[in-house]
Write a protein that binds this DNA or RNA. Sequence first.
DNA 1: CTCCTATTGATAATGGTTATCATTACCAAA
DNA 2: TTTGGTAATGATAACCATTATCAATAGGAG
Lengths: 161, 161
Amino acid sequence: MQGHFYRRNRGSGWWQGQFKGCGYRFTFPRRLILDVLSSSSMHLSAEDVYLEVHKKYPGVGLATVYRTLELLVQMGVVSKSDFGDGRARYEMNKGPEGQRHHHHLVCSNCGLVIDYADFIDEEAKLLKKVERGLSEKYKFEINSHLMQFYGLCEKCKGKKD
Amino acid sequence: MQGHFYRRNRGSGWWQGQFKGCGYRFTFPRRLILDVLSSSSMHLSAEDVYLEVHKKYPGVGLATVYRTLELLVQMGVVSKSDFGDGRARYEMNKGPEGQRHHHHLVCSNCGLVIDYADFIDEEAKLLKKVERGLSEKYKFEINSHLMQFYGLCEKCKGKKD
DNA sequence: CTCCTATTGATAATGGTTATCATTACCAAA
DNA sequence: TTTGGTAATGATAACCATTATCAATAGGAG
Ligand SMILES: [Mn+2]
Ligand SMILES: [Mn+2]
Ligand SMILES: [Zn+2]
Ligand SMILES: [Zn+2]
């Protein structure tokens, strides 16, 4: 870092534990990035996160944002999605309050993304079943899945002439 | 085109009809690209298609391959997937013989991709159910879905120490 | 066969993401 | 508290799949 000074990072608690547990350091930029992700319910791009962090501490660089996001994805703390707009989107996945697993509904016209967890229970039941069958037949060890629905949102559905 | 000559394209049949039906021309490069996709069961990148077409007719450019692939995706003839290797993958989806809808099993370690349609029936049941629920609750008109499983293939599962 | 224009090929440009590298900060040990 | 080894960082260049540009060509209706 050239010319920037962070206040000493004396953090503690859940996040610090998560990082330490994985053999990583809980640095100040990482804390800031987590703050942004935690206090937002949107699907943020790396640049979104960068701009937000930048408001509070202009010293944090874009590269660090990318690196941290990738790290958090690896840790399972953040989930990374592609909604077809040419950039990755990130959102908090696991926090002190537990998981928040959900799937997405994407509008092909305006890009609106809706989170839903309503039908996760039913889905989970079948997903488990399918996963079991696939594991057996293809000798595959399934760790995760991706599921998205595409279509037209209420507004875009009406705009069709 | 600068300096290349295609033999007159006197094609007819199913494909020609598909293109005409959508208001497009059935050109020679487009036919070649379709040939490559039709005669392969792999998940080809745009460059893969380009190299293959290039063997027969070096006059076809990469831009045309990209354009044609995008067109075919719009027409529903080809499906475009992202398996996480930084480039889009294409494969035939609809042909004279009908649809070939399937989902994917992706190895997070070696990138192996397995097509499967075995459990589509069970999946389809749930997908329909969930789609109905989501449509109703969120006033969404669902047109398509994306479903992938990630994990370790047989070989990679064994290599873990 | 003619004419209009959709399509094409070569190539430059785009833009999100990654690599590089000198500098800095975290933290365990003294 | 001081020190030292090293993980992490910031600025920036590089990467690279995909798109835009534009003059030239080819498809196909009439
Ligand atoms: Mn979400
Ligand atoms: Mn496939
Ligand atoms: Zn919409
Ligand atoms: Zn594998």
